[in-house]
Amino acid sequence: MRLKKYFTIVLIAVAIVGFFSYKYMYKPHRNVAEEQVTAALSATELQGTFANSNGTLNIFSDKIIEVNGSITDMEQSTTVIIDDKVQIDFDNKEKMDRTLSKGNNITIKGRCVGYDDLLEIVKVDQAILIN
């Protein structure tokens, strides 16, 4: 009888530990839409801070930021370049469907990935269009 009680307790403990470790191991990816913006700035300002520090600066990298500028180039269905300074990769195709064209002023929220010193542009991914 006592043994049975003991087994039940162990079983519950294992289930709890299992549940939390599963939650920890398979936690969801960060959600750009829900996260707070750490900085809001223009494409030129953003590129300037990276370029002036030789790309070593990382106060913005991996942070959620808001960037604005006008579209100077459209690469593919999910990528735009603003002010020739920042490359924006949109999160998914659906969110890009709003018809954007060259010259449009846009504001986006996304994750700053880092500085590409081959092209001297800052890359932002998982972006969502705000305005």
Partner: peptide, 15 residues
């Protein structure tokens, strides 16, 4: 020449 930003690599599993 090719450059990839390491943080740009996405895994299925976020951990």
């Amino acid at each position: 020449a090719s450059l990839a930003l390491v943080k740009g690599f996405r895994f299925k599993n976020s951990l």
